[in-house]
Design a protein around this nucleic acid. Structure first.
Lengths: 191, 191
DNA sequence: TACATTGTGGAGCGATTAGTCAATCAGACC
DNA sequence: GGTCTGATTGACTAATCGCTCCACAATGTA
């Protein structure tokens, strides 16, 4: 694990515990095992570090989701992999998922370029656009469907971390909520 | 508007713009038209101020929702008022709603007492528990239904503030999404 | 009027922070 | 060996921030 990666990993852990401004760069550096100067050698400012962490995490998530989707063929199955995959990734990467939410409701969000934002939602949007064009989805704005689906994902995830649920029960609940979500957005006219 | 209120209102505006730690107490005081000392006369610490702002906002929202619910009689109608009321309140109180999300994904959440948390979700939970007991809802955990509903509310709200939608279109979309949500959580066996 | 309580102001203190800088160090290439 | 380049260090600083303190004003109370 090279130093920039180590810095990012340490920053993630501290940010979710103490918040952005609650964690001094000096603490990130020392806990990452590098000096103060090294941190600023790789990240010009603290804000730079925060944004870099966000795009790095989103990149990993997207990579994971693409791999999930590619194992399916039909639209519904792809959609299921996207949904279930997201929840499971969130469960296995609690800190990272929490950080994403934290970041999205912070002023730092404005520091992400339009281009980067688009790239991050590309996977979802392409899949949905495709399904919509093939008439698999209800005649609703695709953006709305995307937002509602994302909401359901963070909803079921939030429930699963608050309650303690056995792994079997977890899988079943995730699948149930997926079917509910699918029924919500899918066109009932077609199979 | 007395000074504590003025301080809270100013803090809200600054917090959503610059974040918690991004806004110094001195700036809150000066923009609220009071001195630094006065701020700390009413709020023992900055954290106190943040938490007080949160509970104050949640209190206002709950008061508003109770009024909405009381104008309806049937379970579904109450549920509709709760849903639509939440979205409309969020649209009319953008800063406050944004702050709630910001707060929920911050370390400050731990500073809210268990008792206060329960009081805040009382309205929703009572309504849902009632509907669940009367068999209006699907046989899912009530907490899950509550979380999923809340997710849909913030989902449609997010969509409406990102896109610019005419008021008429807005009302229609909110109602559409409510019906979808109702279909998701309601027991299909009963009317 | 005398006294007590509470509200208000603002200078200032101690601590912390993001970011700098001059100095070393490690390796690549000649 | 000599030279160059980028990595690494950690002491340092200028600025900021949360919060205290104390003087005084306002208001009530007897």
């Amino acid at each position: 694990m090279d130093k920039p990666e180590k810095i990012l990993a340490t920053a993630l852990r501290l940010f979710v515990t103490y918040g952005f401004h609650g964690t001094p760069t000096s603490k990130i550096a020392s806990e990452a095992g590098v000096s103060n100067g090294t941190l600023f050698h790789y990240f010009k400012t603290k804000d730079d570090l925060v944004v870099a962490l966000y795009t790095s995490i989103r990149g990993e998530l997207n990579q994971f989701l693409v791999r999930q989707i590619n194992t399916a063929s039909t639209s519904k199955e792809k959609f299921r992999r996207l949904f279930v995959g997201s929840v499971e990734w969130a469960l296995h990467n609690g800190d990272a998922f929490y950080f994403i939410q934290q970041f999205r409701f912070s002023p730092h969000l404005n520091l992400v370029s339009e281009e980067e934002s688009r790239r991050q939602s590309e996977v979802h949007m392409e899949l949905l656009q495709e399904a919509r064009n093939a008439n698999w989805l209800k005649p609703l704005p695709v953006d709305l469907i995307a937002t509602l689906t994302a909401s359901q994902i963070s909803g079921i995830h939030q429930y699963l971390v608050e309650k303690t649920v056995s792994p079997d029960e977890q899988r079943k609940l995730i699948d149930d909520v997926f079917e509910l979500t699918w029924a919500t957005v899918a066109n009932p006219e077609l199979p």
